[in-house]
Amino acid sequence: MKPVFRLAVVFLTLAVCGAVFFVVPPAEGLGNLVRIAFFHIPMAWMSVLAFVMSAWWSAAYLRRRDMRDDARSCVSARLGFLFVLLATASGAIFSKLTWGAYWNWDPRQTTIFILILIYGAYLTLRASVPEARRRAVISAVYSLFSCLTVPFLVFILPRLTFSLHPSPLLGGSGRVEMDPVMLAVLAAALADATLIYIWLLRRDSAAAKEESLHEE
């Protein structure tokens, strides 16, 4: 990854942090708590994106049998696992401070919990298959198989119980109308998280490919 890119990402991250703490106005009804959302929403977005990309590269591996795709899928899942834990933790803190409980099996909490389970299962599976090529096939198949839960998570689960979670389009401020400054900062935070993901993905998948070739 070019130094210019890295510098830009570092700068953007600092700028977003600065904006979240100093520029964004406290939200009506939530006050300063709304600042958590600028961390939580990008993390939740990244955990879903990393999941989709991991499955995408799994499919690419099964089609092309290129170990680089397997390495990317693996690294994407590892990053996604980290993102999903951060999203869950920040969400639980926000939930405690606004709704009064860390955890209440809200549909969105259930969804993210299932995502944790799937990431965990995928990584456990990878860790327990010793042979590199076999592991690549097996984990790619599981990654795609676990995608079958997506229609359930999107269409059925939200109907099982009612949700306190603000709808995603409204952003972190929930019932409050989204202010243009907040929207701009949120967009910057999302872009920043995506760039950090790309950075780490590029860096780690080169290393992961070396690793798997070394094992062979």
Binding site: I114, I118, G120, F145
Partner: peptide
């Protein structure tokens, strides 16, 4: 169990 549970949750 680890692999099957998330997939059969639906």
């Amino acid at each position: 169990a680890i692999l099957t549970f998330p997939v059969i949750l639906p």
